[in-house]
Design a protein around this nucleic acid. Sequence first.
RNA 1: GGGCGUGUAGCUCAAUGGUAGAGCAGUGGCCUUUUAAGCCAUUGGUUCAGGGUUCGAGCCCCUGCACGCUCACCA
Length: 504
Amino acid sequence: MEFSELERIRVEKIARLRAAGVEPYPTRSEVTHTTAEAVRLFEAAEAAGSADPVEVTVGGRLRSMRLMGKIFFAHIEDGSGRLQLFLRVNELGEAAMESFRADYDLGDFIQAAGSMFRTRSGEISLHVRSFKMLAKAITPLPAAKDELVDGQVVRHAALTDPETRYRQRYADLAVNPEVREVFRSRARAIKAVRDFLDERGFLEVETPILQPIYGGAAARPFITHHNQLKQDLYLRISFELYLKRLLVGMLDRVYEIGRDFRNEGVSFKHNPEFTQIEFYMAYADYFKVMELTEQMVAYAAEQVCGKTTITYDGHEIHLAPPWRRLTLRDGILETTGIDIDAHPEVEGLADAMQSKGMHPKPGASRGKLIDGLLGDFLEPTLIQPTFLYNYPRDISPLAKSMPGDSHTVERFEGYVAGMELCNAFTELNDPLDQEQRFLEMGRDYETGDEERHPMDEDYLRAMSYGMPPCGGFGMGIDRLTMLLTDRHTIREVLLFPHLRNEGE
RNA sequence: GGGCGUGUAGCUCAAUGGUAGAGCAGUGGCCUUUUAAGCCAUUGGUUCAGGGUUCGAGCCCCUGCACGCUCACCA
């Protein structure tokens, strides 16, 4: 390791501690309470009028030090909160005080034993009788503490540089408590989804991440290779085709929470690997799935935020069921004046778009044009939760057709805050129809679409054994977390978002 | 991949083409109830990297890298 000057000074302190017979990285600590527990104990004793001292040993990082000659104040922080330490030469002696002054730095992990009390200004604190180093920090935490300059410019920003925050998430977490809170919320959201499905008889399963054929979504995959088997494999882009095989196997309600990998561009809402929840439910259709979706998201909001009305990007959003239901046709008609039902063929739709001054992408299918209208005009207007439903067949190869409408399938997407949150449909369970869809996608591939659905023969074999009618659902956990924590980029809800290699 | 922007001390930020600075942190002092303590003194720079223009470049030009925003892409 190469050290900066600040770091060299701390390395010298390590040597000094060792020379004095003090191990700066001891194997064990004697911590008995978190800082929050210590405070609660003391408050309880106070409330009970108890005169017995509350004795604790707490541990944490040194986050502030105010050394005032014969007495020191300091704050330590652990995962539960902060606690002020009060050190006085009367109890500790001059040698210990001097060691603390000279060898202890902000960022060090220490433990302190003593009894709880209130300072004259009323802050619950620990009157320290003994302390020891638990782990010496060499690199100073990137914490800023700006001060009043000429009666103004109070800037107490901590680490804010996004690159440093993402590359050194450990440092970001260490100095920015609100970042820690985001990831606690993320965990609560996942637990809420899991509990919600478990309570409704769903079975959590795990399916292959390394897949010989990828499918279930339109995305380019990452390719890898098994050496001994001499087998090319793909990292999964969705769980869909494996989960639906399980319905053939009489596991009626299944779900998986896990990582998908898509070899595509990164953006504020895309990361090459992201977390997805998918569930499949036998004997359900997409309307049933809509009901479950709105209940599940509202439940997650309650668990994470304590309520179903949340704020996202300044918008007050009401997640309580029922959510607005809007057919894709009506939504596009309202926002563009184009009736997609009046244009069952791509040529007519493209003409209609041109007459509105739009520039339909040459060679795009009808479904892709409709998807473009949705993304450009309708999606930004969908702030309050909305189920858009009934989608073009040609962009939905795994969804079941609507009875009596060969161009449309029973599919919906849930939109909140102008962002696609989830995607679901009545699943196609007709093996002959499914084979036909794969073949149609194959034609698209031959005309240059990289994101084709490759034919999955085994999936067709599974379906040909008989697949119960079912509804299926997929939702990005990252986007759900963004929504519930009011974060506006996916990087803020990923502990270690994907970045380019660090420069030399 | 395209466009725009940013890159200066550990952190947050200044600096007309003319001596690289501030606050906090650090270091040395003073201080026995502080509160993002206070006071005195002080250290710390390959200004992202490499070229170029100029008497002189943190600043202007070129190339590269990283990050941000945005467009494209995106079942």
